[in-house]
Amino acid sequence: MTCLLCQRPLTTKLTLPWLLSWQPVAQPVVCTACWQQFQPIILATACPQCGRAQPHWQVCRDCQRWAAQPDFQNVALFTYNEAMQAYFQHYKFQGDYRLRAVFQTIVQQRLQQLTADQVVTIPVTTATMATRGFNQVTGWLDTGINDGVLTVAKTVAQSQKDRQARLATKQPFGLAPGVDLSGQRIVLVDDVYTTGRTMRHAANLMLENGANSVTGLTLAR
């Protein structure tokens, strides 16, 4: 076994507490050195609305500017740093689908802790699906295909724009025909929360269509 990120051989140490725990062997997919490059966000002090890491608990400046929008809360797992950028470069843009395994466990674990009637993922465009071949978000949830609640029109990728252009983006999402969200508590999953524009568009759409509440979950913020 080699580390998925640095290709160095992986070694698993057997510790006494683990042996006595009678747990199955947890095969790591990345080495400790690579894993430590990712910076987990401490939930207690993170911004309650967008999930950004910060030293003290408060609504961050970006979120204060969103005040007029309907209520929306996001939970983020990691800070978007260089390691995360490199990860997305390889996973999303280079298309190394194996790398979904790096965050599969942690995303699925966190998802289980959130109460949800339905889990909705941000879809990728048909063009992206045809070239990339997978949806990076549903990859972590282990299907890799658009899950069918939301549809998306052909757009310019958010990652190609600056902040102003991102914020000015028009609603790109639509609800797939035959989907009924009334009274449901939704958890909306995406890869990165940057300005919040994408997530809020999707959340607003679902709230307008009768959803009871929408909580966000992103890997990075």
């Binding site: 390889h90 280079q94 298309g95 190394d96 689908y97 194996r98 071949g133 997978f134 949806n135 299907t143 890799g144 295909i145």
Partner: peptide, 12 residues
């Protein structure tokens, strides 16, 4: 890859 597609992970 999903939907019965495949990719080469050796020369990425």
């Amino acid at each position: 890859l999903p939907q019965k597609q495949f990719y080469c992970y050796q020369c990425l």
